[in-house]
Design a protein around this nucleic acid. Structure first.
Lengths: 348, 348
DNA sequence: GGGGTCCGTGGAAGCGCTCCCACGAATTTC
DNA sequence: GAAATTCGTGGGAGCGCTTCCACGGACCCC
């Protein structure tokens, strides 16, 4: 009954021109329009020009779904933050990573989308999203040990790079800073300053960065020929408030401490406050070293001596590793550990 | 030459089963499998069961690109943060919005992606992303006046809701807090406390929230029968450092001030610091009111009296308006202005 | 008990795009 | 000058899915 109107079916829907319509207007075939859109060199200048004019006139925008269906690429990568604590979202380190990755991608055809998962349900949703082919790959900031996403994603064959070493030595691509080394250098700096009782405020013990920085402190302490005194250790949660509370505990447990390595800058700022509240001067009475070299390390009082991570390098590697996996030319689980650097300011 | 192998073409690619393969295994047609996947009621229990078993066995995941191609829906919405200053990313208000929108979406079929645009190039990329049909709609936190995205997006017919009133009274859907009213109440509170010289630290004048809160202060000041003294005004940028600097200027311009309305909590924290540095006690010498009721307002010293925005309500409305537009049942440019509430704590 | 309704089902036509393949014309090579 | 190459082009199949339509069987009503 209904005649075959293949040619102009979509002409009925105004506002969304298709390849065919461009082809008709330009007087060429669909294939040629496709070539122009995809910048194939095998098109004569005249044809190219005609097509470009038609595209402009029709305000043609290619339909990505249709394209993806055949190319099996979406030109989209996701940066997934899998973390229950909303506040971590405002951690400057996270903001820097987002910024860096996004900057590394701006000159490519890839678009970055951010996904956050606060609980198992959201993790499921994200896993589905990725498995269904919405993205070509994912950079995962999976911070806690019990996270499901690394398994699900790599199991589903989604190209994946972790930002931060996986908690269990599973075989997966990752990029991380040399947290152990950085913490060690920070602690050695404190020891080298002649401090006798060097305490530490650690990060959460279910995050690898927390564990590694703690390990670095332990090693440096042992190397200095000192006992690892539990009274010199307080666990924080990478937040400013957590750092303040931990520092207060430390002051209580070990009133004679004269230096402290704090495993993140926000926590160090909290520690500074606790120290001030307790009437200790920094650095005279207590020397403080932080970690991250966040913006706040420069502006707080006194400015924070801290361990800087090479963020540009790290985000660059992150993107590089991911792209290689997407291209299919990467070894299964390449890893990078980037060197850190001590930045000496007023606090130690 | 090559025989027609329509049936099993995709069988060659292991690991990504298609509808057809599920259909074959379940002994039904593609159409029936599709019905099961889409939870159509018109399927017999036996067929449904067989299909579900096949799906489980094959670990079948529908290909969203293929589905989108025909349904013209992606079940994805974007939250776009269009803002050059990376630091805003760590503004707790932004984090709260993300959290709220994402929470409002978790029980729906919609997935939220976050997109950030720091410059015109990234804005272009995002515009393309949206126009090409990657998302069903966008929530835009377009904070500055010269942003292109609202125009491009609404021009392209992408369902769009702004978070925050547009700078120029353009006709577009938005949800905003009653910034003018909130600022007014805050200022009136200060006046009601008997303060004679009520200053203000404003937000950036190219952001509508900055402008509106300033307007609220002006109105309240005028209503109190006082002149709007320029010496009582300093412009900040919504950051803590900016607030500190602005407060310092204020102290310089108007040493006799005895109260200040600060247009955001992070700035208020900065102001508190400047005040302490200048030896002024809060609230004895200078009463301070902030805006946002951020986490930090509770933990700072003294706790901040501040204007709370109904975040859950706002994010709920944001999602509601967007969904209605996506369904096609919304008036073109519905708007919501949500009431604010003064939270009195120690600082005023 | 015959004609209507309802319901589950499968066939088939696309959605908009890419890309393989074949084709004719222009160019080169011996 | 004929065969071989190159090059731009168009035809057409197919990516995996949804959905319209038609079909046959079970059911209902008078």
């Amino acid at each position: 009954m209904a005649p075959v109107t293949t040619e102009l079916t979509s002409g009925a829907r105004p506002g969304t021109p298709t390849l065919d319509e461009v082809a008709v207007l330009a007087g060429v075939s669909r294939a040629t329009v496709s070539r122009v859109v995809n910048e194939s060199p095998k098109v004569s200048p005249e044809a190219r020009e005609a097509v470009q004019a038609a595209i402009a006139q029709l305000r043609y925008v290619p339909n990505r779904m249709a394209r993806s269906l055949v190319t099996r690429r979406t030109d989209t990568v996701a940066l997934v933050l899998s973390e229950p604590n909303t506040q971590v979202f405002s951690d400057p380190f996270f903001a820097s990573i987002v910024h860096g990755v996004s900057a590394a991608l701006v000159d490519t055809e890839l678009t970055l989308v951010l996904l956050t998962a606060r609980d198992a349900r959201e993790q499921q949703k994200i896993a589905r999203f990725a498995r269904q082919g919405h993205v070509d790959g994912v950079v995962l900031m999976s911070l806690h040990s019990e996270d499901l996403l690394p398994d699900v994603l790599s199991g589903a064959g989604v190209p994946l790079v972790l930002c931060g070493r996986p908690y269990d030595g599973r075989s997966v691509a990752y990029v991380d800073a040399d947290n152990v080394g950085g913490a060690r250098v920070a602690t050695e700096h404190l020891v080298g300053l002649g401090r006798r009782r060097v305490a530490t405020v650690t990060g959460p013990t279910d995050m690898i960065a927390g564990v590694d920085r703690y390990t670095g402190w332990q090693r440096a302490t042992a190397d200095a020929g000192r006992a690892v005194d539990p009274a010199l250790v307080a666990h924080g949660d990478f937040t400013e408030a957590g750092g303040e509370a931990a520092m207060a505990r430390l002051l209580d447990q070990a009133p004679d401490l004269d230096a402290v390595f704090v495993a993140s800058d926000p926590m160090a700022v909290g520690a500074l406050r606790a120290l001030r509240a307790a009437g200790r001067r920094v650095p005279e009475d207590v020397a403080v070293v932080g970690f991250d070299d966040a913006e706040v390390a420069r502006t707080c009082d006194p400015p924070l001596t801290t361990v800087a991570q090479p963020l540009d390098l790290m985000t660059g590697e992150l993107v590089e590793l991911l792209r290689r996996q997407i291209e299919g030319v990467a070894a299964p689980a390449e890893t990078r550990t980037c060197p850190t650097r001590l930045v000496v300011r007023g606090s130690a």
